[in-house]
Amino acid sequence: MTALNTQPDARESLLSPAFMHRLERLDVMSRKMLRGKLQGERRSKKKGQSVEFADYRSYVVGDDLRHIDWNLYARLDKLFLRLFMEEEDLSVSIVLDITKSMDFGEPNKLLYAKRVAAALGYIGLSHYNRVNLYTFADSVADMAQGMRGRRPIPRMLNFLQDLEPVAGENVSGNLAAACKRLSMIQRQPGVIILLSDFFDKGDVAEALRYLGGEKHDVYAIQLLAPQEVDPAKGNILGDLRLRDIEDGDIAEVSVSPALLRRYKTNLQAYCQHVREQCLKRGVAYMISETDVPFETLVLKYLRQRGLLG
């Protein structure tokens, strides 16, 4: 049996100190004004306690007298309230696919996903956002919720480092079930970053249906190993009995140029399908191969796509 499982030592550091230092200059951006839970560094739609003036409104009985603009009352003889912008924190949920299909490729997709998650989590925590980590296979498998501030950074990294692909013959990915479960757990509006290869034999559209909508600002990052994009790199040649690493499904193929062409066409079509479904649900989509340095992905591509800023 041959599997491209090259996961390094679990204890290996996911982020280098230098890279962490570079990450501190970034912040997780949301395309939407999402309601936070606590006061934070992010402008909210609510009017609140910050020093930044927002608007005036007429006084109604019961309003806090401290917010009345007395100077204006002196000039106009009417009571007006000064309104200020509210600043709230942002919920950043990072969802990792830990099905066996992610434990594949050179570089390994799961390790790559962990590093990206670590980087995003680090950025989120550095800016006092509330960071939640979720993993899923056939449903949500594990989670680390409610991390805020720099203190839980080691916890987050440990959580990520300890992640292993879900074992068991009958455990195969079910993105729809996972997303449904996630939508029930993560009620707080926020940014959701989904890291997966999206090799799900179910319906991707149904899965995205649970995450779409106004409540969340969802980013879907599809990770593919170079061996999946070009099977020839993975020595997939000749008469083969291909076994699905997740469900043990068998495909007997005689690999020929025509078949490889057809595979690549199908891969493109599948990625396009995922992309279209994402766009349909208002989900930002991006794809990356794991041979792209994850630092480049984080520092360059995610910034270009507006997730980081």
Partner: peptide
């Protein structure tokens, strides 16, 4: 020759 792959989804379709 037997070989493990991440998913047979696209191969079967091909």
């Amino acid at each position: 020759r037997q070989m493990m792959i991440s998913s047979t989804l696209l191969w079967k379709k091909a």
